Computed example of a mutant assay.
Amino acid sequence: MALNYKTCGYCGRIFQSSGASACPECLRKMEDQFKTIKEYLYQHPRASVEEVSKETEIDEKLILHFLREGRLEMVAADGFLVCEKCGAPITSGRLCKKCSDTLAHALGSVLPKQNHVDEDQTNNRKSMGSGKMDKLHVNINSRK
């Protein structure tokens, strides 16, 4: 397998990549900054992006990056973050619900339909379960 090298989008260093757009050092720094933002938001849950940036000394662009990734969510869609397709205000991610549903429908209509489900796949689904109890739920209000 050939090694894949990229230039870090943040510091400009060349690094061996496994798909990330940032080098391991920048990823570690970003995680540290995310923890700082998260701690600040625990103490100030209704803080604006501008306030978080000012008080933590973390660039608004990085906070926007975390919002786009869906790692953070705004309390209200105030226009700071907008849908990349239609421009509607959103609280997290890249697309509004309407555009996301439209994209999912479009992808579903072009992907081949699976009419035949073999017995192993059916048994795997049964063993994995389905529903809300199978998902990890995190309560951000309770901290250890």
Rank of each mutant, 00 (worst) to 15 (best):
M1S: 14
A2E: 07
L3N: 00
Y5R: 08
C8M: 03
G12Y: 03
F15P: 00
S17W: 01
A22Q: 02
P24E: 03
E25K: 10
L27R: 13
L27K: 10
K29Q: 09
F34H: 11
Y42E: 03
Y42V: 08
P45S: 13
V49H: 10
S53G: 15
K54P: 05
E55F: 02
E60L: 07
I63Y: 00
H65N: 04
R68Y: 08
G70Q: 01
L72A: 15
A77R: 08
D78P: 11
L81H: 10
L81N: 09
C83Y: 10
G87N: 05
G87K: 00
P89D: 12
I90Y: 10
I90S: 15
G93H: 14
G93R: 08
L95Q: 04
K98N: 12
A106P: 02
G108E: 05
L111F: 11
L111T: 09
K113E: 15
Q114E: 14
N115K: 09
H116G: 07
D120V: 11
D120G: 01
Q121L: 13
N124C: 01
S127R: 13
G131Y: 00
M133L: 08
K135Q: 06
L136I: 10
L136T: 02
H137T: 15
H137I: 14
N139M: 08
N139T: 07
I140R: 08
S142V: 09
